[in-house]
Simulated assay, not measured.
Amino acid sequence: MKNFSSIKRKTLSSIAVTASLALAASVAAIGTAHSAATVKVVITGTASCAKDATPTVVTITPKKGKTGSDETPGDEQSEQYTITLTGIPNNGTTATAKVTCLDDEGDVNTPKKKDVPIKKPANNSPLTLNIP
Rank of each mutant, 00 (worst) to 15 (best):
P89K: 04
G74F: 09
L129M: 06
E76A: 14
N109K: 15
E76H: 10
K64T: 15
I7W: 11
R9L: 11
P121L: 08
S20G: 04
V27C: 02
K10S: 13
L102M: 13
P111I: 06
P117K: 09
L127D: 05
S6Q: 14
S48A: 15
T44S: 12
K113N: 10
V108N: 09
L102N: 08
P55R: 05
K10Y: 07
D107I: 11
C49N: 07
T100Q: 14
P121R: 08
A24E: 03
T54Q: 08
T82C: 03
N90V: 10
V116S: 01
C101A: 04
K64E: 13
P89V: 06
T110L: 11
I118R: 02
S26L: 12
M1N: 11
G106S: 07
S20N: 02
V17G: 00
K51F: 13
E79T: 09
E79F: 06
E71I: 07
K8M: 12
P73L: 08
V108C: 00
F4V: 13
P89T: 06
T59D: 01
T100L: 12
T38V: 15
T46V: 13
K113H: 02
A122G: 05
G65M: 04
D75F: 10
I7L: 15
R9T: 11
S6Y: 09
K63R: 09
S69Y: 14
A36T: 11
N123W: 08
G87T: 05
K8H: 10
P121M: 10
A36P: 00
S14M: 11
I83D: 02
K40S: 15
I83K: 03
G92Y: 04
K8F: 13
S125D: 14
T67W: 01
S5I: 15
D70F: 15
S14C: 09
D115F: 01
L129N: 02
V58F: 05
T96M: 10
E105S: 15
A29G: 15
V17D: 03
K51C: 00
K2L: 13
T84K: 08
A28I: 09
K113E: 15
A50Y: 07
I131Q: 03
D75R: 12
A122P: 01
T84Y: 01
I131P: 01
S26P: 00
S125L: 12
T32A: 14
H34P: 00
S14F: 03
F4W: 07
P117Y: 01
D75V: 11
T61S: 14
A22M: 08
S14E: 11
A37R: 12
M1Q: 08
